[in-house]
């Protein structure tokens, strides 16, 4: 484990009109680790991720990348830092093949002509480096791929751009057992190659199978960020549903909202 986080935010606040969605959220992501971001519906996971990726500007708070303070105003800023997001709905074009999708919007060219050879080679190398065996041909149309294969392509697309942080929004939600295992294995390999991986998931089995750290959100706050080996399944569920579990989590008399729900 590295001492300094690759990406860290401190005291993030975010409101949509009168609704405060994030309150003083601290969140740190380390290279070489899978950090699971868990929380109930509406806890603020997606908003936090969108703030990290520059889709939503933050109201207040600090954003550090590699220990240096940075400002992220747009997805382009985040992408130039090396933060890539794999969305739940994947954002792939069915009528294009694997290579074309992986390079979409960032095609390699020779003059005005597309450099198909280089793109195909890089796509193959990326898939190979992730030890992907499920995608047999990089010239297959994405339409012909299964859900797990699509997820693999979406992840490989994020990796292709020398990304340092890869954030995945419920990558296994729509997958079967075997495909889920494949994707989780891929996340593990991604972390092992030095990426900082964030996994948003509702599935405790997935979370414990793959993550090094678990960050639990509760009603717009970061309830706790702990090592996966330090907590039990039941403790994480308590953190998600009540915001605290024994010593862990938000202070019992912290705010009215926590108390209100806890009773």
């Amino acid at each position: 484990m590295t001492a300094t986080p690759l990406l860290e935010v401190r005291g993030i606040n975010k409101s949509f009109g009168p609704v405060q969605v994030l309150r003083d959220v601290d969140f740190a992501i380390y290279p070489g680790e899978v950090t699971a971001l868990v929380g109930d519906n509406g806890a603020g996971k997606s908003t936090l991720v969108k703030c990290l990726s520059g889709i939503h500007p933050i109201d207040s708070g600090e954003y550090y990348f590699d220990g240096n303070p940075v400002t992220v105003h747009s997805p382009r800023d985040a992408a130039s830092l090396g933060v890539e997001i794999v969305y739940q709905d994947l954002a792939l074009c069915d009528n294009l093949d694997v290579v074309q999708n992986m390079f979409l919007g960032r095609e390699r060219r020779n003059g005005i002509v597309l450099d198909e050879v280089t793109m195909e080679q890089l796509a193959s190398e990326t898939l190979t480096s992730l030890s992907v065996r499920t995608v047999t041909s990089v010239r297959q149309l994405v339409a012909s791929l299964s859900g797990g294969q699509r997820q693999t392509v979406a992840i490989a697309k994020a990796v292709l751009w020398n990304s340092k942080v890869v954030i995945l929004d419920e990558p296994t939600a729509a997958l079967g057992v075997a495909q889920t295992a494949n994707v989780l294995e891929l996340l593990r390999r991604l972390a092992d190659t030095g990426h900082a991986v964030v996994l948003i998931s509702h599935n405790m089995n997935d979370v414990f199978a793959v993550s090094d750290r678990i960050a639990a959100m509760y009603l717009g706050r970061m309830a706790a960020q702990v090592k996966a080996t330090d907590v039990t399944h039941a403790q994480v569920v308590e953190l998600i549903t009540a915001g605290r579990s024994g010593e862990l989590g938000l202070a019992p008399s912290g705010t009215e909202s926590v108390n209100g729900v806890e009773s």
């Binding site: 382009r76 969305y87 709905d89 994947l90 954002a91 792939l92 074009c93 069915d94 009528n95 294009l96 074309q100 979409l104 919007g105 960032r106 095609e107 060219r109 005005i112 002509v113 597309l114």
Partner: peptide, 24 residues
């Protein structure tokens, strides 16, 4: 078939949202 523009035409026709997110 051979230019980025053509590729983007197919992409927008196939999945407009994906094309938008890809920065097209």
């Amino acid at each position: 078939n051979r230019t980025a523009y053509g590729r983007h035409v197919y992409a927008v026709g196939g999945n407009r949202e994906a094309a938008r997110r890809a920065g097209i």
